[in-house]
């Protein structure tokens, strides 16, 4: 190998590297990777830091029969209201400032969707098991409650270790892995290659959603150079590694109307408007046409801006 070969191949490698690590995509390109019938995990918590621009892109697609796994908020509500959901897996579904999610309630009360309702800690362990490629993790959560009767597919297991002073081991719930085809999460900041930074009070379980999924797509308020992360927050805020991330979407106000502090708080007035549409089919149609049918995230933001 000559010197010139070496330098040529180094340059080629460097170019390939640059190409391989730029994972930028649009919402439409992410949705093009999804298929009907998939199990999709959505990060955030209630009405907090939800990847709403990606959720709305799903609403506009012809995807259907989805299984949605989420610490549920308006993501589940909107997907139910537009008939995208075959099954919802959740510990709760809430809009936080509005405790009960009206669109989700409507879907439940009409029997439109199947559900796997879990203790929210058991839900965490299901994600953790999937992240660690374990079939289940044991927990006491669910023993004695109706969680097991509601979900006959969840089994118990006897500990092989005795529980002193007893001679036998205790019976525990074997919380099955919540394996995801795809995870969608929203971060405050990301770089081109998919490292994600949260700047708010809680990461929630977004790292586990990413790890539990075959493919993860991350939207972020802003894409910044990797070197700039530390100007935004301490290294404790760098909790999503690009090794788990397949695509990055820059989506300013991408979590609207859920909160995304410190970038913005929840748009409570908009959330109230959204919630009220569950009672009124005409209002729902107007809301859908005005906001959800907007062909892009930019068009959606314009519609939000121009609405009184």
């Amino acid at each position: 190998m000559t010197d010139s070969d070496t330098s040529h191949s180094a340059a080629a490698n460097s170019a390939a590297e640059k190409h391989a690590t730029d994972k930028r995509m649009t919402e439409a390109e992410v949705v093009a990777e999804l298929r009907s019938g998939m199990t999709i995990g959505i990060g955030g918590w209630g009405s907090r830091r939800k990847p709403m621009s990606l959720v709305r892109a799903i609403l506009r697609s012809d995807l259907e029969d989805l299984t949605v796994v989420s610490y549920g908020g308006p993501d589940i509500g909107l997907l139910c209201a537009t008939g995208k959901v075959r099954k919802a897996i959740y510990g709760f579904v809430s809009l936080d400032s509005i405790p009960l999610e009206p669109h989700f309630r409507k879907a439940r009360q009409s029997g439109a969707i199947k559900v796997m309702e879990l203790d929210e800690g058991a839900f965490y362990l299901g994600l953790l098991a999937a992240a660690h490629r374990m079939p289940f993790y044991p927990t006491r959560a669910g023993l004695g409650s109706d969680m097991l009767a509601m979900n006959p597919e969840i089994k118990t297991i006897q500990s092989p270790y005795p529980t002193p002073p007893y001679e036998t081991g205790e019976t525990l719930v074997a919380m099955p892995a919540l394996e995801l085809d795809v995870a969608l999460i929203h971060m405050n900041r990301a770089d081109l290659s998919g490292n994600g930074q949260f700047l708010g009070p809680d990461l929630y379980f977004d790292d586990l959603f990413a790890m539990a999924a075959s493919k993860t797509y991350l939207s972020a308020e802003k894409i910044i150079p990797t070197e700039a992360f530390r100007d935004e927050g301490s290294f404790h805020t760098l909790r999503i590694s690009r090794i788990y991330v397949d695509g990055v979407v820059e989506a300013p106000r991408g979590a609207h109307f859920t909160e995304c502090p410190p970038d913005y708080q929840r748009d409570e007035a908009f959330q109230r408007q959204y919630a009220a549409t569950a009672k009124d089919p005409q209002a729902w149609q107007t809301f859908k046409q005005k906001f959800l049918d907007a062909p892009s995230h930019e068009a959606y933001l314009e519609a939000v801006e121009s609405s009184p």
Binding site: F92, L100, E117, L118, D119, E120, G121, L143, S145, M147
Partner: peptide, 12 residues
């Protein structure tokens, strides 16, 4: 609301 954290709270 859903089961929320009630099953885990009570048993722990």
């Amino acid at each position: 609301l859903g089961l929320r954290g009630a099953p885990g709270n009570l048993i722990n």
